[in-house]
Design a protein around this nucleic acid. Structure first.
Lengths: 189, 189
DNA sequence: GTCTATAAGATGATAGAC
DNA sequence: GTCTATCATCTTATAGAC
């Protein structure tokens, strides 16, 4: 049928969850093993090293996230609705077990990774920025208040807000902090 | 004369540096010992547990940071200049050895800490917000474009931008990313 | 105060039986 | 594929000599 319940998928799911919760340096093979009811050695069968595991988790996450953004494009026409959905996407990690975006967490721990993985983290941010730029360009067509020269900067600002608000919202344990920051920004857009 | 070069101070300095660079879960007593040329056991003399160490590092950092904000207040009268200096303060961590704000890093690792330490992290953010609110209130007096009801939200937005931009700037290794985000925000203020 | 020595446990990782 | 057993290393932490 589907392959969502294979050991491989369970390892990737639990690995993702643990990194989003506690960070790369904050989880171990033992944690995954206990959570999904297998032994540590079984994880090494799929991912000989921890870095290979985190890389697989990251690449799947990036692919899924880009897919989510593509679905937003399909679902909404209004660029402001798209932006709201973007912030909603970042909110969903927080809402679901107080997790951070995987790449927000990995950005904090960036010194722990080799260049290859750092590149994938930054690719995630770059892809986010490009998607936002497109949305802002659509907004520009409908609204002359957008300065065309500054769209790249505005796009990075949007991304920085999503990440900073997520970090503050989770630390305080108050989801409303995330909402108030995002809503304030959207209201003054 | 001064007590800036005591073993205690060296431990706090190096501890702060390592956490800002690699995170709480990314450094060990062995790292500090090697860096400042003492043995691990000597660190335990001052700080029996790692949590006592991080708490001391955090409390000193918070005090120093509040002091920096007070100095900005003394140095500048114009609220926009104060805001620029605030962002400059967050920039200085990045500029100096690619470090994150201690509390940005600790917010990412917040699940690793007991309630007592979480409170101190959130106090840092709260104090930042209060300081920014005051600056925005000064701006309001001079500029009717500030909505008085939304100052708390605007204040959190400013803080979220500083943190998000710092995270993005360090991850990419491009200080200009931090600058472009902050400058874009300030230009549209 | 700083050291040596050492404990007790966790960690990432491997070999080899089933 | 999954397990048991084991490894070398690192981790936080303590006891006790100097």
């Amino acid at each position: 049928m589907n392959n969502n319940n294979t050991t491989l998928q369970k390892i990737l799911d639990e690995g993702l969850h643990l990194i989003q919760k506690h960070g790369y340096n904050g989880f171990s093979y033992a944690n995954i093993a206990e959570s999904i009811g297998i032994k540590k050695a079984s994880i090494h069968y799929y991912f000989p090293t921890k870095q290979e595991l985190v890389q697989a988790v990251l690449q799947r996450y990036n692919k899924d996230f880009l897919n989510d953004l593509a679905q937003i494009d399909q679902k909404f026409k209004d660029p402001v609705d798209k932006l709201k959905s973007f912030f909603q996407l970042y909110r969903s990690a927080l809402d679901n077990s107080s997790k951070l975006c995987l790449c927000t967490m990995m950005a904090a721990e960036i010194t722990s990774f080799p260049e290859e993985i750092r590149t994938d983290v930054n690719r995630f941010f770059h892809d986010n920025e490009k998607w936002i730029e497109n949305v802002l360009l659509q907004k520009k067509s409908a609204d002359s208040s957008v300065n065309p020269d500054r769209i790249a900067d505005q796009s990075r600002l949007v991304l920085a807000i999503a990440q900073g608000a997520q970090l503050l919202g989770r630390s305080s344990g108050e989801l409303e902090q995330y909402d108030s920051i995002v809503n304030h920004f959207l209201a003054n857009l």
